[in-house]
Design a protein around this nucleic acid. Structure first.
Lengths: 220, 220
DNA sequence: GCAAAAGTGTTAACTATACACCCATGG
DNA sequence: CCATGGGTGTATAGTTAACACTTTTGC
């Protein structure tokens, strides 16, 4: 039997907070089709490679990111999609990753990786706008019933930072008092003795996450 | 460039209620590996075929089921898995489907399709037990925030039947009065003038679903 | 008349929401 | 002293959960 499988690719939506805004990692395509257009980091899955291995390789090659620095990686959905080259139809396994300390060196690769706010996306290649929209929805759901947001915040953070992250992802304002009451009742975070001083106002208490692995925690 | 993709397969978890129990469709494998063992219906995805097209073909060939008779089909997850033949690693795109009127003809194909209660699964091939467990969990979640259960019930049904379906999927008993109060407040189902008579007891009112497409409806 | 499943309300506990002022700091 | 963001409590409405008896039918 001569079995020929469809082209199989992986595409990843890497989220990170930048200035209290939810941002997604985009690269610039160096090859046709969509050469010069921005896109999600992605590429072929080779024979013998798992989807996760391909993801690691692609993020490392195209954005200089090591997967081990991303505290949360989760598969999203598998799209039947247009191929990257004219051979026709392809299948793309998509992943979502959350980061907090990712520093990009836009000159280290020709792909110019950068974080772009999800509420101000440029015109991106393939069906990647759809994938980003799906990832945003998944993330919104995920932070509502797990502690997934830990993966987007630094080890020590203020309640205002935490609230801003929730607000950016949910795309709606939250009441400060109700938010604090709720979050403290969940045993998801713990007070630390440290304070954060920043500008002409009262210093803020710093908190940390009790668990830095994914845990069920009904927030909303 | 000579690009060789991993082997790509599709596997489907088809659910149906049988005697108030949640059942899953299994076939018997006619080829190695796991020849003679039961398994989810599945097979190769060919070049040029979408995952959904492959799913249709596989269900038709191996179980005699036309996809158009399944009111709800949803992609589950894509597993890196063992290959069906010794060439090594494969990628399996899995789907969940819900049915209500599926009648199987176990003699029409050599695959002996049959519905088996999920709480009494035999030893099944590959990583299919894991896939069924994942599908059950997804279904449990899905019926909690959508009307997905419509796809498992006949057009006309009693409140007891509906409650039994929820109980079978959630694997816990529900309070009859609270259940009825809740379901009636959701505008998910509507009374019909018909009654269902069955045995030596009071006849039951028949209801129908207001929507027979997937709709958001917070049930639990 | 009896066995079997259908049908029906109330109360208490909990959860979610709305809302406004004082505090600590730097300049 | 003033501008800035940090921090705090209460009252109401809505939701969930617990619980037992009467009705209608076939035999």
């Amino acid at each position: 039997m001569t079995y020929t499988a469809p082209i199989l690719t992986v595409d990843t939506v890497v989220f990170q907070m930048v200035d209290a805004r939810l941002c997604v990692l985009l690269i610039t395509r160096t090859n046709p089709p969509f050469q010069g257009r921005r896109a999600l980091p992605g590429g072929y899955i080779s024979l013998g490679e798992t989807t996760h291995e391909a993801l690691q390789r692609v993020l490392s090659d195209k954005a200089g990111i090591e997967c081990t620095t991303l505290p949360l990686i989760e598969q999203l959905y598998t799209f039947d999609t247009v191929a990257r080259d004219p051979r026709g139809h392809a299948v793309s396994v998509t992943y979502m990753a959350l980061g907090r300390d990712v520093v990009l060196d836009a000159r280290a690769t020709p792909h110019q990786p950068q974080f772009v706010p999800v509420d101000a996306l440029p015109d991106i290649a393939f069906d990647h706008a759809q994938i980003v929209a799906y990832a945003c929805e998944r993330l919104r759901n995920k932070i509502s019933y797990t502690n997934a947001i830990f993966a987007l915040l630094p080890d020590y953070f203020t309640l205002s930072q935490l609230q801003q992250a929730y607000e950016a992802i949910l795309a709606r304002p939250l009441d400060k008092r109700n938010f604090r009451k709720k979050i403290m009742s969940l045993a998801m975070i713990a007070e630390t003795p440290q304070m954060y001083r920043d500008g002409a106002h009262r210093p803020a208490r710093l908190y940390r996450f009790v668990h830095t692995t994914l845990t069920d925690t009904a927030m909303f």
